[in-house]
Write a protein that binds this DNA or RNA. Structure first.
Lengths: 133, 133
DNA sequence: CCCACCGTACTAGGACGATAGTACGGTCGA
DNA sequence: TCGACCGTACTATCGTCCTAGTACGGTGGG
């Protein structure tokens, strides 16, 4: 089954990139191993309620990264190095954004302890989710 | 003196909102108290290298929030409730973005400890900056 | 009183991304 | 073989945001 993918057109980050991010996460976490077939452009568009062209663009970007290879007629497949590339790309990006967000929160007056607490409470909620699986 | 304001047109967040965020931070942290005069539209545009219209839009958005009041002919001034409103708005927003970024980093496979360490190292760097002031 | 500076408004243009609709050729199972 | 499904490509249109240039009237110090 697909991870719970979704796209919010309200956010600053463009839909095509939101989708690409989530696919990268899924590939990086081995939800799709090398050779796996990703959802078709049309199916995925219907699933997250965006235009097929937008999905196609996300796939094209991922292909440019070497994570994925589209085979005309049959589908889009994870490459051999896909998981490694995805993990590297997302690891770097998310860590950068995390630091950026932390800095902004500090700049806005939040105490370091507040952020540390929030982080801990995320861990608790994550444990809850995993326990109920 | 102005805080070190800057705008990066490359980022996803539009320049006008980047600027508004930074002004909110400055007002929230009492760098500009009630009644303070903010830089003129033209000066600020020259400072951060964007169009005066873009600065004007940021001011208009802040005025809609009640943080600021533009007086035609004389300048843009922080309102009485400005600091409180700015603190509330930025506090909520930055905390939300922080949690979102933390969740994304965890989703991408980072360990909770990695994030906690990064957070601590930010504190260290922040102390360094404050020590050299 | 004046003139420099202020916020504000307006038009026009361009960049970018999403959307809509259509079309073409490849693939593969029934 | 044939038809359903696939990726891909293309054009056109829309909305949002920034840029550019111009203009107007209010404000306030010299």
């Amino acid at each position: 089954m697909n991870p719970t993918w979704s796209v919010d057109p309200q956010l600053d980050r463009p839909p095509s990139r939101q989708l690409a991010d989530q696919i990268l996460d899924a590939v990086a976490s081995d939800a799709f191993g090398p050779g796996s077939k990703l959802p078709s452009v049309r199916d995925l568009a219907a699933l997250v309620l965006i235009n097929p062209n937008t999905v196609s663009r996300a796939y094209r970007d991922l292909e440019a990264m070497g994570v994925v290879k589209g085979r005309s007629g049959s589908g889009v497949f994870v490459t051999e190095k896909g998981p490694a590339l995805a993990a590297a790309a997302r690891g770097e990006e998310t860590l950068r954004l995390f630091e950026e967000a932390a800095r902004a929160a500090l700049r806005a007056g939040h105490a370091m302890e507040t952020l540390a607490e929030r982080l801990k409470s995320l861990r608790a909620r994550k444990r809850d989710r995993e326990a109920t699986r």
